[in-house]
């Protein structure tokens, strides 16, 4: 309940007690950990999406386990891979079929901005055709970045924020760099 804490007060009443909170906060909190996803996997990034869903990275740990292969039942649209001009109407239609509330994650550079396919066939970023909540750069993004993206989306859902956000490099915690340098005998600091 860490995220709802700000607006939550525990009111006395013996051992059990009860909790008050704003209804929206509770709703947002409930939503962000039960995301039903629709993977719209078109290209190479799909391989990395599988990897993120597979046992090693296990996206299910973050409350985004169940893929729903019907847009009507999904909350999050993962656009995984290049969207060609020919595919664009299909994507738009799938987005329109989803029920509110809905969020969109652009997975990979191609979905975010077209990547190096700067040509007649490719849509230069799906934000040209639908609003995007989170962009995950990388070609393809590593599964760690995918998890970051998912967590960023959850944070945004909790805050009720609908602007576009880009996943950035995560900062290593203090002291981690020295440790990595020692362990792997590499130089990470300037």
């Amino acid at each position: 309940m860490a995220d709802v804490e700000l607006e939550t007060r525990v009111v006395g009443g013996g051992d059990a007690g009860f909790v008050t909170t704003k209804f929206e906060a509770l709703l947002a909190w409930a939503r962000k950990y039960s995301l039903f996803q629709y993977p719209f996997a078109t290209a190479c990034c799909g391989m990395e999406f599988f990897a993120a869903a597979s046992p090693r990275y296990d996206i299910a740990r973050f409350g985004a386990e169940a893929p729903r292969f019907s847009p009507r039942q999904a909350d999050v649209l993962w656009v995984v891979g290049t969207i060609s001009q020919r595919q664009a109407p299909v994507l738009k239609r799938i987005y329109d079929q989803m029920t509110e509330p809905k969020w969109v994650i652009a997975f990979g550079t191609c979905a975010s901005c077209g990547g190096f396919y700067d040509n007649y066939a490719t849509v230069p970023g799906i934000d040209k055709i639908l609003p995007v909540d989170v962009m995950i750069p990388g070609c393809p993004p590593r599964p760690e970045a995918v998890l970051d993206g998912l967590m960023l989306l959850q944070q945004k859902i909790g805050d009720g924020d609908r602007t576009t956000a880009v996943v950035k490099n995560t900062q290593l915690p203090d002291g981690a760099e020295e440790k990595l340098e020692r362990l792997y005998n590499i130089r990470m600091r300037p």
Binding site: Y120, P124, K128, I129
Partner: peptide, 22 residues
Amino acid sequence: YPAQQAQPLVAYREGTYDKLRP
């Protein structure tokens, strides 16, 4: 044929960022 001459099927949304803006 110019390589970048796209012929979109879906009209682009208003107010999207340019390609490199993000």
